[in-house]
Write a protein that binds this DNA or RNA. Sequence first.
DNA 1: TGTACATCAGTGAACGCGCGTTCACTGATGTAC
DNA 2: TGTACATCAGTGAACGCGCGTTCACTGATGTAC
Lengths: 216, 216
Amino acid sequence: MRRSARCPTSDMAKRGYHHGNLRQALVEAALDLVRDKGPTGFTLSEAAKKAGVTPAAVYRHFAGREDLIAEAARQGYEVFADLMQFAYDSGQPSALAAFEATGRAYLAFARRYPGHYIAMFESGISVNRTPELAAVAQRARDVLEKAATDLSQHIPPEKRPPAAMFSAHIWAMSHGVVELFARNSPGTQSPFSPEDLLESGIGVYLRGLGLIGADN
Amino acid sequence: MRRSARCPTSDMAKRGYHHGNLRQALVEAALDLVRDKGPTGFTLSEAAKKAGVTPAAVYRHFAGREDLIAEAARQGYEVFADLMQFAYDSGQPSALAAFEATGRAYLAFARRYPGHYIAMFESGISVNRTPELAAVAQRARDVLEKAATDLSQHIPPEKRPPAAMFSAHIWAMSHGVVELFARNSPGTQSPFSPEDLLESGIGVYLRGLGLIGADN
DNA sequence: TGTACATCAGTGAACGCGCGTTCACTGATGTAC
DNA sequence: TGTACATCAGTGAACGCGCGTTCACTGATGTAC
């Protein structure tokens, strides 16, 4: 739930006239709403109510509704980028292990932080809304591209695809698996778990690049 | 635009007291709205206005707001399934050509019918909302799985992945490419066109299955 | 240590708006005679 | 062919609602003296 202890929400008594950490409490209320009721289910008023506060109080901390959900997304990208970086590091010094770990990290993030995921990818806010948001999203993308660049060193140069294309493929497959199979939305449930689907899909893809043996 | 000639919209004069084909006009108004203003931008009232009619008139043809957007999605799945079937047929008798054609058809559909695409995949309506909707969505999925089954006959049985997994991978990559790179949403634009990205991604994947040569 | 005061986070009432939905109605259409 | 009538698609007024946003205010906090 990632809730600071000082930060009351609807189920906790308010401290008094002043909240203490309303800004973050509002972000977390927004994340809960978006997680429980989908991207449409978030309203400024209800987030305020969840945080135990009048809607007008929100305007002490945010320019408006859009600004609040954008901050939720920004925090999501921050966690996401950290998670990708951690996955990359944990696979080192093997370029292959590092790359596979980042692929898994995408799905793991969507599972563990569904509110953030929705704010980032399904709420309709543009990543170019603010420079900060664009920068942190770029940081996340850069980790994946770095992992792809490392790995592509193991492909003979003449048949080596650009690393940006490489990472785009993996990003697309990860995103597709999450959207279609991990979140219950349009795809009926597949007989395979999203984790298996992503693992095996990336496996076939890497074999196609000649990076893992045909017998593996 | 797929608009029947008998079917006036906002920019055409109404025929009189009776509309003629209001039901379909409302569906097309909803598709236009959703295409131009995103999944959130659709309201029953505005769709009615676009069709040159009072909001109350909508209730002669639909149970309510949800029912209208669900019908738009249903028609989208119908077109989608037809398109997939056509692509599959056009690649015959080559299993490989048929499969690659269905992959391309996914992206082509998203490009040519953005309103339908959004209604189907981004409006949040569940595919299990009605039996009709579930059935036509299944029909679309079956085409891809049939293409995958055909193709997997060319893989030695002991290293042959299940066709359902096979088609799920391609569906996921196609969906991911569309969401991240063809619709402008979260991913900044990549240096590669979505078409190139999907083509090359599927190419690598099929090479990984041993279905096309390493020199291709 | 005690008091006056500045700060500013949150209040609560109010606003205009567009939403989805209902209802009794009206009038165009097309069919039966 | 002409007229009476049944049908039912669309009207328009009304509803209650929750939304985002504004404003003058109030009162808790913590600092200066």
